[in-house]
Design a protein around this nucleic acid. Structure first.
Ligand SMILES: [Zn+2]
Ligand SMILES: [Zn+2]
Length: 815
DNA sequence: AGCACGCCGACT
DNA sequence: GTCGGCGTGCTC
């Protein structure tokens, strides 16, 4: 008999994160299964905490164990595959069970508790604070919230007195648990009589009112109908339903409704298209992988417009026909309604959507659709890789090179790593798709570790744009101080005259915005962080994105007192002004991801740009992803080289990917597009290759650089960041940690380069100084092994650490 | 992390 | 005797 549960506790630290064993009370034996959420007493005080059943096992040795207090939900929230994944992640990312489980569950599901204290008897001579507790409690009618009572009594040893009183039987403490998200119910009606009887009553004129008949007819076709729907469809007031209930024809009941994020997003059903020859080859190959039922990893390198999405759709179709499920990952910014509709168009309501822009309720409902097997395809951003399918056949990672697949918070996983592990454990096929694969993935394909499939032809005979690189040094020499080269100016003017549209991209390093004094060049910075402040138009305030520090938008420069201080956004505002100044009567629209707020304003701006035929749109690079603008015939890229030479080993790759994408998109219509790339660095291979849309040449160049400088894929990177308020102390700890790292690498017999400590790129956040150690190691396992030992060792020694240590394995952003 | 326990010194 | 402060140790 399985009488013991092995349980992971919520809110632990690495130090005490293990499987804790609890007795399953007799009443729960058989009903508590792995993956369930329970409440258990934990620690000396037996405070009640949330726990996750990892396993149930049998043991006669029971004496020293505590009992599970109660179960939270009737169904498991984690399936067996997810529990195995959690164990793997805990090891891989040096985090806790709970950290990993949080990734797998929709946000808002965690329980929070309220404790209520009740007075039972108040005999006995109480004195001091104990008397005060009794008095306050009695004054409030003998029942009070724990926290409120604690506040009013205001003593440091409150918990002790409460325990004391509890033991004496004077008070009782009740604890309730609730979670933020709940199922949504609506009032609905159903037929309370057999349909034949209703028909009889209608025929015998017992029911005459035409609207009554209409309602009953609707109910004959649908078991339950929400009251609101009847009111709307039939055009009656809710009171009519009360009448019908009184006559015994119908009954009310609350039914659960699924909150559908796309409820009023119509889509058209599509049928599979006849694949091109190239597409067919890819489809056949991956289908045979699916048929084999074994783990397989494959890179689909297909240029923009080669029809990757149709390939995905047909593979998913095959996967479904095998009775399996599929996950499609798409970068958050590309996850537009149009994108989702391509999948819904093919698979209808078998598609669930998962991304962070949905409300808590919607996310919860979409997640449950997946868990309960009511859907077969998930389309989503990074977190969708945790979709709780139990018969996974295929995972597709579109735009595999996108850095948004890497999580910025603990556990700092990359969606591709999780997908790979899932596919290994669940015998699924993992398909990476990209027009510009990351160098690491392409290397794996080239060396035969994973399979490489290619699509090199444009499915719809799109015309490639004509790309021109302008050397901005020449402009300067010729006395042109404008942000636009003479060439770009001419082309923009031509476009305005002919009524065609232009997009101007400003390629910026990072997306941080800034507020600048034009008089003295002073940039407004956060006093606690090493970052510039961001302007928020609500209430005219400036705010720090890292610590939340906020002040009123200054009218005068703090340094020179001039009133020339103002918001430059991502720099796009200045470009916008420039366009207005240089092109009389030109209409401009600006799009900054940072400053656009609200659910639809992003979509709204793009729609306005297209529908109102605005002359010029100015924005940061990613804005036009997943959108078609048939009338855009000119794209200008300003500062194309701005992320080169920033010290990030991925800078060249990013530049190439960005420019290729821009160049690949202009000219989708009937008129050939023109792309003008402005740079100070005309001969850098990432720019040259992008102009020619030549990935392979870029790769061949870049892989040599990576090899020479010892960067991925030739080594594994890790970054260790130490942070604390005392700069000197942080550096000291960093030096200590470096020593520890060296020692452990020696111990496990592997070699690594340990660089630093140097000041981290964000040298100060929330008043904490940051120092970074960078590690390069060939063996991934040993790297993780050493980092685990050093990190756990660091936290096991001094309990009170004023310097925090955080680890990022395979960071994608070295800046 | 959170909490109890233990020891000490301050205050009544 | 009562209360708070702080260091230590443990969590099935
Ligand atoms: Zn700040
Ligand atoms: Zn100034």
């Amino acid at each position: 008999m399985n009488n013991i549960a092995s349980i992971a506790i919520s809110n632990t630290t690495r130090k005490f994160d293990k499987d804790y064993h609890y007795i399953i009370p007799d009443k729960y034996i058989g009903s508590i299964v792995p993956g369930m959420r329970v409440i258990v007493p934990f620690g000396k005080s037996n405070r009640l905490v949330e726990g996750y059943v990892l396993d149930v096992l049998e043991s006669p040795e029971v004496s020293s164990l505590k009992e599970i207090s109660r179960v939270i939900d009737e169904k498991p929230v984690l399936k067996e595959n997810m529990i195995r994944l959690a164990c793997w992640m805990k090891r891989q990312y040096i985090c806790t069970y709970y950290d990993t489980i949080k990734c797998m569950l929709p946000p808002g599901t965690g329980v929070s508790s309220t404790k209520v204290v009740r007075l039972k008897k108040c005999e006995g001579g109480f004195k001091g604070n104990i008397k005060k507790i009794i008095d306050v409690l009695a004054e409030c009618g003998g029942e009070m919230e724990y926290e409120e009572l604690k506040k009013q009594v205001n003593t440091k040893t409150f918990a002790k007195y409460i325990n004391n009183l509890k033991e004496q039987g004077c008070i009782e403490v009740h604890e309730e648990f609730t979670s933020k998200v709940k199922e949504k119910y609506v009032r609905a009606v159903y037929l309370a009589k057999p349909w034949e009887e209703v028909v009889y009553d209608i025929e015998t004129n017992k029911i005459k009112n035409i609207k009554h008949i209409r309602i009953l007819e609707l109910l004959a076709e649908n078991e339950y109908i929400p009251v609101g729907d009847i009111v709307r469809f039939v055009g009656v007031s809710a009171g009519v339903l009360d009448t019908l209930k009184k006559k015994g024809y119908l009954e009310f009941e609350d039914i659960e409704v699924t909150r559908d994020p796309a409820a009023n997003m119509p889509y058209e059903r599509t049928l599979p298209m006849k694949p091109t020859q190239e597409q067919q080859v890819v489809i056949d190959r991956v289908k045979s992988m699916l048929d084999s039922g074994e783990f397989n990893e494959v890179l689909l390198h297909g240029i923009t417009g080669s029809g990757k999405t149709e390939v995905y759709l047909q593979l998913i179709g095959h996967c479904i026909s095998m009775g399996k499920q599929a996950i499609v990952l798409v970068p958050e910014i590309s996850l537009t309604p149009q994108m989702v509709n391509r999948f819904k168009g093919r698979f209808g309501e078998d598609v669930a959507v998962m991304h962070s822009r949905l409300s808590l309720g919607e996310r919860y409902d979409q997640w449950r659709l997946v868990r309960d097997g009511r859907t077969k395809v998930v389309v989503g951003a990074r977190s969708a890789v945790f979709a709780p399918f139990d018969n996974l056949g295929l995972v597709i990672i579109d735009e595999e090179h996108e850095s948004s697949y890497k999580s910025e918070i603990v556990p700092k996983y990359h969606a591709a790593e999780i997908a790979r592990q899932r596919c290994i454990m669940e015998n699924a096929v993992l398909l990476y798709g990209s027009a510009t694969p990351s160098v690491e993935t392409y290397y794996r394909a080239k060396t035969g570790e994973i399979e490489l499939l290619e699509m090199t032809k444009r499915a719809n005979n799109m015309l490639l744009p004509e790309v021109k690189v302008v050397d901005m040094r020449n402009e300067l020499n010729a006395g042109n101080r404008s942000v636009f080269s003479r060439c770009l100016q001419n082309e923009i003017r031509k476009n305005i005259d002919s009524g065609q549209q232009t997009i101007v991209f400003l390629n910026r390093r990072g997306y941080a915005t800034f507020i600048l004094c034009r008089n003295c060049g002073y940039v407004l910075k956060c006093p606690y962080c090493d970052v510039s402040l961001t302007y928020h138009s609500h209430e005219e305030r400036v705010i720090c994105h890292y610590c939340g520090f906020t002040v009123k938008n200054p009218e005068h420069c703090p340094k020179c007192k001039s009133n020339h201080i103002r918001n430059f956004g991502t720099g796009t505002q200045k470009i916008e002004e420039e366009v207005k100044k240089q092109f009389e009567g030109c209409t401009v629209i600006r799009m900054d991801l940072d400053t656009t707020t609200g659910k639809n304003s992003h979509e709204e701006i793009l729609r306005k740009f297209r529908d109102d035929n605005i002359n010029v749109m100015v924005g940061t690079q990613m804005i036009a992803k997943g959108h078609d603008f048939p009338n855009v015939t000119l794209v200008g890229v300003l500062a194309a080289d701005s992320i080169l030479n920033t010290g990030d080993y991925k800078a060249a790759e990013r530049t190439f990917q960005l420019l290729t994408q821009v160049a690949g998109r202009a000219g989708r219509g009937t008129i050939p597009g023109r792309v003008i790339i402005q740079t100070y660095n005309t001969d850098n291979y990432s720019i040259v290759c992008a102009c020619e849309q030549d990935y392979v040449s870029f790769y061949n160049n870049e892989i040599l650089v990576r090899k020479n400088l010892q960067y991925p894929p030739f080594i594994h990177l890790a970054s260790v960041i130490l942070s604390g308020v005392n700069d000197k102390q942080v550096l000291n700890r960093a030096l200590f940690v470096k020593n520890e790292l060296c020692r452990h690498f020696k111990d496990n017999g592997s070699t690594a380069q340990i660089l630093g400590p140097l000041r981290a790129p964000l040298a100060k956040i929330k008043n904490k100084y940051r120092w970074r150690i960078v590690i390069k190691c060939e063996e991934s396992d040993k790297l993780i092994d050493v980092l685990t030992k050093v990190s756990d060792g660091y936290y096991s020694k001094s309990a009170k650490n004023s310097v925090a240590l955080s680890v990022d394995i395979n960071p994608v952003n070295m800046l």
